[in-house]
């Protein structure tokens, strides 16, 4: 097992949705309104690596995570899993891929079927893939998955309904359902944002432990930079459907380059007294992804924006080993700042 073995390689991924228009609009306007939720993303995730995807709502981070798992249809681009391109029109191949790539959802109160006992919910992936023959085997595997997720002893949780568990326990049960197939890759969509702070760190520890013990690769989607820093090897900052900066997590936090990353960092809540912190609170909100600004998509809110930013879209360029940024300020021909 090589350490740097690539698990997921996303190339030029685009996800677009048609906006539903009213009946009259549909008749009278020829132009379709399109939301470019993900607008050309390249992303590599290696074995035993946690990559965090950070952005505000509307940045397309969740859509990207779901698109990688084929939970929303991909408009353009390809996804390589362990070096092999996945053909999403081939149902068998998709099923096989789903087997190895799982998702953890944000809201543990909603992500478990309220009518399913824990044992049935956790065992469901086994049944769908015909992986168990006897009830005994099924129970054993569920208990193991529950205990691997920190619900020990597993027997005590088998015959409970979701509403009988606390938030943290539910999230662990959902994680058990994802682990039972021994996946290689997990997309974790804000897995702790709905939980109380005191419970959060337990779930984070669990994910880190899984990464270590099973060499799992994670895509960790979050709006919280400090969480991303804590848990991940790499951080990718997304803005309006594109990655604007990506690099090692310490590098991003300590030596960020993109003005958007810097603004996010400056307002990051830190439990410290900081009355005179130099906060760069951006004006306005993230634009509507159906009307992406021309040029650099951040130019409308950027304090450093100059003429070129309004015309030309910057490319993601490597500034340092593994640290990429998409901003004209860092292109070679620019000599300012």
């Amino acid at each position: 097992m090589k350490k740097n073995e690539n698990i997921v390689d996303v190339k030029g991924l685009k996800v677009q949705f048609d906006i539903k228009q009213s009946f009259l609009q549909e008749i009278f306007t020829k132009k379709r309104k399109i939301v470019k939720a993900v607008d050309g993303v390249d992303l590599k995730i290696n074995k035993g690596e946690i990559v965090s995807l950070v952005g505000e709502s509307g940045s397309g981070k969740t859509t990207l995570g779901k698109a990688i798992l084929d939970l929303v249809p991909v408009t353009e681009g390809e996804i390589l899993f362990k070096g092999k391109k996945i053909d999403f029109s081939n149902k068998k191949e998709v099923k096989k891929f789903r087997h190895k790539a799982q998702m953890i959802f944000q809201d543990p109160y909603q992500s478990l079927d309220p009518k399913s006992l824990v044992i049935d919910a956790v065992a469901e992936p086994l049944e769908i893939n015909n992986l168990v023959k006897t009830a005994e085997e099924r129970k054993e595997k569920v208990i193991k998955a529950l205990e691997d997720s920190g619900l020990a002893p597993g027997e005590n949780f088998l015959y409970r309904f979701p509403y009988e568990l606390s938030g943290g326990q539910r999230q662990r049960a959902a994680i058990a359902g994802s682990l039972i197939l021994n996946p290689d890759f997990i997309v974790a969509d804000e897995p702790v944002s709905m939980l109380d702070v005191s419970v959060r760190t337990g779930i984070l520890k669990l994910l880190l432990g899984l990464k270590e013990s099973r060499d799992l690769a994670f895509l960790f989607i979050t709006h919280d930079l400090s969480l991303a820093w804590l848990i991940s090897d790499k951080i990718a900052i997304m803005y309006l459907g594109k990655i604007v900066e990506i690099g090692e997590s310490d590098e991003i936090i300590k030596k960020s380059l993109h003005p958007y990353t810097q603004a996010l960092l400056s307002i990051m809540p830190i439990p410290e007294v900081h009355k005179n912190r130099n906060r760069k609170v951006l004006e306005g909100e993230i634009p509507n992804p159906s009307e992406i600004p021309k040029g650099c998509r951040f130019n409308t809110r950027c304090v450093h924006a100059f003429d070129k930013c309004k015309e030309v879209e910057p490319k993601l360029i490597e500034i340092k080993d593994g640290h990429f940024v998409a901003c004209h300020l860092f292109e070679e021909e620019y000599n300012g700042i």
């Binding site: 702070v197 005191s198 959060r200 760190t201 400090s226 804590l230 439990p271």
Partner: peptide, 19 residues
């Protein structure tokens, strides 16, 4: 305990103990 549950980028990078 509650306070240390929040990651602080100015401090050491360790996952705090849950309550």
């Amino acid at each position: 305990k509650l306070l240390s549950s929040f990651p602080n980028i100015h401090k050491e990078k360790i996952i705090p103990e849950p309550i």
